[in-house]
């Protein structure tokens, strides 16, 4: 049985598809968006996250670290990430939970055990499981096994994906997915490369294939001020989606600053620290513009 790297399993996930859901977060993503709100989802490796407020300066972590990467200042613990070999020994001894490892290996059975706990809620609400990330398709074998297991248990599945994956893999997985939450950020290939580090190539094909096949798709559009809220991008997106045979609905997810603290915990620079979230008027204007293409548009799941 295959093993995957998961960084969180969230119960009562009520914003990731219909009904009450459990969301399983896969670690690692082929994209490298610099304002990702889950920065711990990007790397495929486990990472240390440090919560300053919780540190009680007991010093156990210093003892535990064989690399000499841990030190204390007058307030909290500090990790020299160049020396750190990610062994996790400091987190093991940190009883105050100031140091935590994001990402752990789990078997399909372990993940299924967590998923199956909330079947009563899925049944009642028409909910199910959502695989999110990171990018679940990057751990395709593991994902496939989970999807098949869910189908065997009669659990509805959703896949939250950026769809940057080989189309063969994508098509194999799609059979077991009841709903796609399809992330679409930037339409122009060059700009997409600049922002995410990869081109739009497999993404657009995968979306077209999916939609034309009649799959249930909700396009999720993270609205990032100054990055993808310009007229050109909106027009390109509206045009692309409107030209598809079955026009998928679009859900706008406006940027919020919630991820900033996580960059701090990972010891990474938060370039978006000062970036203001879009105003309600701006969000609404984009929504109306997209609706003008004959698309069903919602904002954070609430219909326009």
């Amino acid at each position: 049985m295959s093993v995957g790297t998961i960084f969180d399993i969230k119960k009562f996930a009520i914003h990731d598809g219909p009904g009450v859901r459990t969301t399983v977060f896969f670690k690692g993503c082929p994209l490298g968006c610099w304002l990702c709100h889950n920065p711990e989802s990007q790397s495929f490796e486990p990472e240390l996250m440090v919560r300053d407020g919780r540190c009680n300066r007991c010093g156990d972590c210093i003892e535990a670290c064989a690399q000499g990467a841990v030190s204390l200042n007058e307030k909290t613990v500090h990790i020299d990430r160049n020396r750190c070999d990610l062994c996790g020994a400091c987190a093991d001894v940190c009883l105050a939970e100031a140091i935590e490892v994001a990402g752990r290996e789990m078997t399909v059975a372990e993940v299924m055990h967590e998923i199956e706990k909330d079947v009563v809620y899925y049944d009642e609400s028409g909910g199910g499981v959502t695989f999110s990330g990171g990018e679940p398709l990057s751990q395709a074998e593991f994902l496939l096994e989970l999807l098949r297991s869910c189908k065997r248990c009669g659990i509805r599945t959703a896949l939250d994906t950026c769809a940057h994956a080989d189309s063969g893999v994508f098509r194999k997985v799609a059979v077991y997915v009841d709903l796609f939450l399809f992330d679409l950020k930037i339409m122009d290939d060059q700009r997409h490369r600049e922002f995410t580090g990869v081109g739009v190539d497999p993404i657009h094909q995968n979306l077209r294939w999916l939609v034309e096949r009649g799959a249930a798709v909700i396009v999720r559009f993270p609205l990032l001020p100054g990055i993808n809220d310009d007229e050109e991008n909106i027009r390109a997106m509206g045009g692309f989606l409107a030209a598809l045979d079955n026009r998928p609905p679009v859900d706008i997810l406006p940027y919020h600053g919630a991820g900033v603290a996580k960059y701090d915990r990972l010891g990474r620079e938060a370039r978006m620290r000062e970036m203001p979230p879009p105003s309600a008027e701006a969000i609404e204007a984009v929504a109306r513009r997209l609706a003008g293409f004959g698309l069903h548009v919602s904002i954070r799941g609430e219909r326009l």
Partner: peptide
């Protein structure tokens, strides 16, 4: 648990 913005934490 609080609603942050389109998600809860």
């Amino acid at each position: 648990i609080v609603r942050v913005a389109g998600y809860s934490d």
